[in-house]
């Protein structure tokens, strides 16, 4: 398991699913949340998300949340290990952004074309 923490970049889908699950959520909620977080840029495919959720469950980065019997929808939340992964990823992304800013210049809105 330890090796899985050291691996490189997370996919955008995994990164945003993990971030969404700091609060318990079901599939549809995750998709909506990701859309909101990314200002509509990331529209995760339902099948893509299904695969990612199953892999994250296997890795123990997220957990199913115990729920009342009435609700059929499965909810998930991030685990301690998942939070660890996110922390490392944020550090990695910071490095990428810092180097990007230093070398290519930060504000790319108009000047970079």
């Amino acid at each position: 398991m330890a090796e899985s923490l050291e691996r490189g970049a997370l996919t955008e889908a995994v990164y945003y699913i993990l971030l969404s699950l700091y609060k318990p959520m079901h599939g549809y909620g995750i998709m909506q949340n990701i859309k909101e977080l990314s200002n509509g840029r990331v529209a995760l495919g339902a099948g893509t998300m299904y695969g990612a959720i199953n892999t994250l469950l296997e890795k123990g980065w997220i957990n199913p949340v115990a729920m009342e019997e009435k609700s059929r929808k499965k909810e998930y939340q991030i685990t301690k290990m998942g939070k660890e992964v996110i922390k490392l990823e944020v550090l990695r992304l910071k490095e990428l952004i810092k180097n990007g800013n230093d070398i290519a210049g930060g504000d790319c809105n108009e000047s970079c074309d």
């Binding site: 529209a43 339902a46 099948g47 893509t48």
Partner: peptide, 11 residues
């Protein structure tokens, strides 16, 4: 809204 099943290259 839009309906996609697979949104990244991997899947």
């Amino acid at each position: 809204g839009e309906f996609t099943i697979y949104s990244d290259n991997d899947s």
